[in-house]
């Protein structure tokens, strides 16, 4: 199949960027989207053009590196996958695909499609952890965890910190990311102890980074490659108001 790519090219953080058009001729529909960029880059290198810079690592949807906006959708049109798991068969032959970096003030562009997401690291540093050593896994029945809590914690823990929620949010809000961490740790007994200070500190850190404010559009949930539900945001809203006392509620 043939595809036209319109790609954001930007040399560095301080230099202005612009879109460039590249043609991908006779590519297999079975290529992943990142493999398409690899093929295009090989062509660019033989022409003496600087290849397109993009983040990628595991290429199996668990590292959260491959961040890009494809035709206005974070990680492209397929639901619940990262860009690395998006295949060309989901596009039409001859289609023009616009590829942009995540756009949010707290995610400054470093080069082309690569943005600096260390704002997320600073939010995690503010409280997204359990500060005591919990030792080995305890005997399974010694600390009962209600199924409701275990389910929500596991769903939220699927967050790979890719930033698609911020990229897709019309307000560039990081609520789904922060809520996922708050729900993941706050619903389990080990994380419960520090729940109150965690949510306060992480919200403060989120605000300090300059993310926008949540207006409940729910674009984040559709964009999330792990399909994390906005129920996590409702949980964080409750936690912020008054932390719950009893498990399973």
């Amino acid at each position: 199949m043939n595809l036209s790519l319109v790609v954001w090219r930007q040399k560095g953080a301080q230099t202005p960027g612009r879109f460039e058009r590249y043609e991908a001729k006779d590519v297999s529909p079975d290529l992943s989207f990142l493999e398409l960029l690899d093929v295009v880059n090989e062509g660019l290198i033989t022409q003496g053009i600087e290849p397109i810079a993009f983040d990628h690592d595991c290429r199996e949807g668990i590292c959260g590196s491959c961040a890009m906006m494809i035709n206005g959708l974070a990680h492209g049109p397929q639901p619940a996958v990262a860009t690395c798991q998006l295949y060309l068969r989901h596009f039409k032959d001859g289609e023009t695909i616009t590829i942009e970096p995540w756009r949010a003030k707290p995610f400054p562009i470093l080069r082309d499609l690569v943005v600096d997401r260390s704002a997320f690291d600073r939010i995690i540093q503010a409280g997204g952890y359990v500060s005591v050593n919990t030792g080995e896994a305890p005997e399974a029945n010694s600390i009962p965890v209600p199924k409701k809590d275990a389910d929500m914690a596991m769903d939220a823990a699927a967050c790979i910190g890719c930033g698609a929620c911020v990229a897709a949010c019309p307000n560039a809000s990081a609520m789904l990311f922060v809520a996922a961490k708050v729900a993941h740790l706050g619903r389990l007994p080990q994380g419960r102890v520090e729940a109150k200070q965690r949510v306060d500190q992480m919200v403060d850190a989120m605000d300090r980074e300059g993310f926008g404010n949540c207006t409940n559009h729910y674009e984040c949930m559709d964009a999330c490659p792990k399909a994390i539900h906005v129920k996590a945001i409702a949980f964080m809203n409750r936690e912020y108001r008054f932390p719950r006392r009893k498990p399973g509620t």
Binding site: R103, A104, K105, N171, G212, Y218, D222
Partner: peptide
């Protein structure tokens, strides 16, 4: 929070 808008804007939710 988003000084530069996207060239292509699509809404899903």
């Amino acid at each position: 929070a988003r000084p530069q808008p996207y060239a292509v804007v699509r809404h899903s939710a």
